[in-house]
């Protein structure tokens, strides 16, 4: 079943003249780690805002077409209700942590939807365990590091038990190792079936590509390509889109241009290693 379905969706913000999203027709289905990429200003953020109703409810403007979240039209169902189906984690954890300690932070979502105390308590315990933040339980948001803050933000969304979680550049402010840890955590959440689908916007493709099952490539407010990760990165559209192509991909792309290599471009270091091994 389609979790999110865009039907000829177009959107123009009230304050701007041009449409930021044009003729969007995509389906998001379950069981996938989806990478959404595109250059700055291509419309990625607007696209995720349309997925939980922030567009058109929080950000007003002109709309054509529909977005359905599990069959519910985002025009009619408030974001706060849709948040039980779609969770959104933003780039800067500082702006999404609203309580003075971690435990209360995680409780906030369940409190808002009226979860009874016993269930809330067990949800909190579970989310703390998955995100590995037991030691931070009583800490205030400004006492912990950026990577830890992002973990708390993730736990606090998980506590709402949404089917889809969307991450808008969750690691851009983090050091490389914390970034990888966060991305691996997302993969783990997906594999352990805590959520059905994960959508991530990332600029650092070198660390996120290896985790991606599917790629949605956005450009100038349109979907340029959507498909299985290997297929997309082997396409001209991806390679010319202006996103940061990882070095491994780009090395083999050049070898391909020189007619030395043919076949599928490696998506990760592991695949690159296998490629070299296969030639040896």
């Amino acid at each position: 079943m389609n979790l999110i379905e865009f039907q000829n969706f177009c959107f123009r913000y009230d304050h701007s003249e041009d449409f930021v999203l044009k003729d969007i027709n995509i389906n998001i289905d379950s069981g996938k780690f989806i990478l959404m990429c595109g250059i700055t200003g291509s419309g990625k953020t607007s696209l995720v805002r349309a997925m939980n109703g922030l567009i058109p409810q929080f950000y007003h403007g002109e709309i054509k077409g529909n977005v359905l979240v599990k069959g519910k039209n985002t025009k009619n169902v408030p974001t706060s209700t849709l948040s039980r189906d779609v969770g959104l984690v933003f780039q800067n954890p500082e702006n999404q942590l609203i309580a003075m300690n971690v435990e209360r932070e995680i409780a906030f979502g369940p409190e808002n939807i009226g979860v009874p105390w016993d269930e809330m308590d067990s949800r909190i315990k579970e989310c703390i365990k998955i995100t590995d933040i037991e030691h931070l339980r009583k800490k205030a948001p400004f006492e912990i590091s950026g990577g830890e803050q992002q973990r708390v933000a993730i736990a606090s969304i998980l506590a709402l038990q949404p089917e889809i979680i969307i991450f808008d550049e969750p690691t851009s402010l983090l050091d490389p190792k914390s970034a990888i840890q966060i991305l691996n955590l997302l993969k783990k959440i997906l594999l352990e079936k805590k959520v059905s689908t994960i959508i991530v916007i990332e600029h650092r493709l070198d660390i996120v590509l290896p985790l991606a099952d599917e790629i949605i490539l956005v450009d100038k407010g349109r979907i340029l390509e959507q498909g299985e990760a290997h297929n997309v990165i082997n396409g001209e559209k991806f390679l010319n889109s202006g996103v940061n192509i990882p070095k491994c991909v780009s090395v083999f792309q050049q070898l391909m241009n020189q007619n030395i290599f043919s076949g599928k471009l490696p998506i990760s270091i592991e695949e690159t290693k296998n490629l070299i091994n296969s030639i040896k």
Binding site: I39, T40, V243, N244
Partner: peptide, 9 residues
């Protein structure tokens, strides 16, 4: 380079 695409970099 935070949050920059290839052009920005």
């Amino acid at each position: 380079t935070i949050g920059q695409d290839a052009e920005g970099v």
